[in-house]
Computed example of a mutant assay.
Amino acid sequence: MKKIQLLSIVSIAFLFVFSFSSCSKDDPIPEIDQEEYDAAELVFAHGDITDGKFVESGETTKITFSPDGKATPSHTHLTEGESYRLKVTLYHDGESINQEIIDAGAEHQFFFVGAPEGVFDYSYEDQQIGLTGILTVTGHSDDAFDWNIVLRHGLNKNHAAAQEWDNANYAQAGGADDVNVTTELHVTTSGGHDH
């Protein structure tokens, strides 16, 4: 009788250990999205290009985005003939996650689409990522327009659709959006604007 009880206890213990280890192996470990953001910020740092280098003047215009994509302010003016260093910062719990994007730079690229043709010229300063770049205002727009800021993850940067910073067909280069927000811009002549 004692042998049967001992055998039963050993069997139950073995079954418990086997079941516990099976659960641990089969349960997937949730992957943490390292680029998950809950706020974004665009800073247009005014400056001039001198001897081929951009020198900031100290004057800035800032747009912030909430987790639901709402832009503050909702309407921003830029001026024809001016140059800006465009800086993008993504935040999670109040901390910048830009370094994670830089570390995986081959997998990320910003696109800036929606401006009327001939209004902007842009060049990446960070190996075709877009966290920093020089935006030159080469024209003006009669009306405000929606400017779409997209961070693409896992794209093929050698694809033709990834060669232009403002390619509306950027999705053809593959990947998925990490960021897709829109703000309203109005590009005015140097004479100013009344609203």
Rank of each mutant, 00 (worst) to 15 (best):
L131N: 08
H140P: 04
V181S: 01
G69W: 04
D51I: 01
D48A: 11
T138L: 05
L151C: 03
N156R: 07
F18L: 15
R85I: 00
D121K: 12
A173K: 06
V187K: 01
A13G: 11
D27E: 13
N158P: 02
C23K: 07
W147K: 02
P28V: 06
E56Q: 09
L185W: 06
E56S: 10
G47A: 09
H92K: 15
G58Y: 06
K2N: 13
A39L: 08
L151H: 05
N169K: 13
N180C: 02
I101S: 01
D194M: 14
D126V: 06
A162K: 05
H77G: 08
T79G: 04
R152V: 14
G175Q: 08
A160L: 05
T182W: 02
V119I: 13
N98E: 09
N156H: 05
T138N: 05
A106Q: 13
A13V: 15
N148S: 08
D143A: 14
D143M: 06
G105M: 10
Q163L: 12
D146A: 14
G192N: 04
T50W: 03
D194S: 14
V119Y: 05
S21T: 15
E31V: 14
M1T: 10
A39D: 06
V150F: 06
N98L: 09
D178Q: 11
G192A: 10
V10L: 15
P30S: 02
D27S: 11
T64G: 02
L6A: 13
A45C: 07
G58T: 05
S96H: 06
L15S: 14
L15R: 01
A144S: 15
D33L: 09
A106T: 10
I12T: 13
K53Y: 11
I101P: 02
H193M: 03
N167Q: 05
A161P: 01
E117W: 02
G81D: 04
L7Q: 11
G133P: 13
H153S: 11
V179K: 08
P116R: 04
D126W: 03
Y124K: 07
G81E: 08
S57Q: 04
Q5S: 09
T64Q: 08
N158F: 03
T72R: 10
Y122M: 14
E31R: 10
H186I: 08
T132N: 14
D48V: 09
L15Q: 00
E107N: 11
K157W: 06
Y91S: 10
A162L: 07
Q109A: 15
H108F: 15
S8A: 15
N156G: 01
Y91E: 09
